[in-house]
Design a binder for these strands. Structure first.
Lengths: 179, 179
DNA sequence: ATTATAATAGTCAGGATTGACTATTTAAGG
DNA sequence: CCTTAAATAGTCAATCCTGACTATTATAAT
């Protein structure tokens, strides 16, 4: 349910937009932190219009076909505040697909395949961390002051968890290797 | 999509069961690691029966009303292996609702409310960690050898990520306080 | 000038999840 | 013995998410 928040927030920050534009904004600004697909955006735009949180008008620009451009209503503005508050209170719960694999590990014949898979995951994760660090440096150099500290918090959040995951993979590979 | 895996795995490990029994098994054995609701279980039992992964028979025990008891088929057994393998290769991706709050932080009026919410989250998380440690000790004392090391990996996995989250909350609270 | 490729802008059907609800049976307390 | 609470066993409607698909326009390459 993060999608409505991102849509409302981006409409407030960057003004009226159509669905594809919202997706572009998400891709350019929060791709590292939120994975939202285009159909999900259109779905919520429709739902939120039904609820009166956004309004839509047809618009034609240049040679492009007509598009529905969405705008934040005052009800949508209130909803944005409400969601922001409710998200502040939502507790973090971790769930990992790999846990299920380990829970049923005795049903898998050989250990070597899993160890290989885990090693692949670990190097993928390291690449992801390197990429994140690169993006962090870019953001860091384009911003300053209070806003910069807050933007860096998002990177820190993900880096902490990805490092935790790497460290756990180390442990898991060790345990599997000696079993 | 972890639910089919848990259902198939628990059917293999504990034999034919009806939906409610599967939920009990999940609640008793993996409640710390997977959050699966009863309707989700029934939904997947139905789907998997359509696909021939489980078979069902009506059964009456004692005074209880008739129930559909599900059993693993050989196709289900194969599917279990397949899911286990595919889950070994699925990469971890972190997503946090709080990130969206920080991304749109400038839309919230006061900082003090958020700081309070984060502090509540941190103490809830500490309680969760304490509870997890208690459960770990229980499991640890009931098991031994290889199986014990693997069971402890699941606890370690969650503890690492919950500690990462606590540590990030510390950082976030500090940044917000001085902003 | 023409073809190929990428970017733009969406739609739709199918699958997954769960809150809220119903109904029965057993256990506990007075 | 009777009432109440808890456990058992499940259903249904509403909601959310996304892979696969369609179609147009702009850009690049030949």
């Amino acid at each position: 349910m993060k999608t409505p928040l991102y849509i409302l927030g981006l409409l407030k920050r960057h003004g009226p937009q159509h669905g594809y534009q919202i997706r572009k904004n998400i891709a350019e600004r929060v791709a590292d932190f939120a994975y939202i697909k285009l159909p999900t955006i259109y779905y919520h735009l429709e739902q939120m219009e039904k609820k009166g949180l956004v309004s839509s008008t047809k618009s034609r620009e240049g040679n492009r076909p007509e598009r529905w451009v969405y705008d934040l209503t005052s009800a949508g503005e209130k909803e944005l505040q409400k969601i922001l508050r409710s998200f502040s209170g939502k507790e973090y719960r971790a769930e990992f697909d790999l846990d299920a694999v380990f829970f049923f590990l005795d049903f898998l014949p050989g250990r070597s395949q899993i160890i290989e898979a885990l090693e692949t995951q670990r190097s993928d994760l390291r690449a992801l961390l390197a990429n994140l660090a690169k993006h962090r440096r870019e953001v860091s150099s384009h911003m300053s002051g209070k806003a910069r500290s807050i933007a860096l918090l998002l990177f820190s959040h993900h880096e902490k968890h990805y490092r935790a995951e790497c460290s756990w993979l180390d442990e898991a590979i060790l345990v599997l290797a000696e079993a």
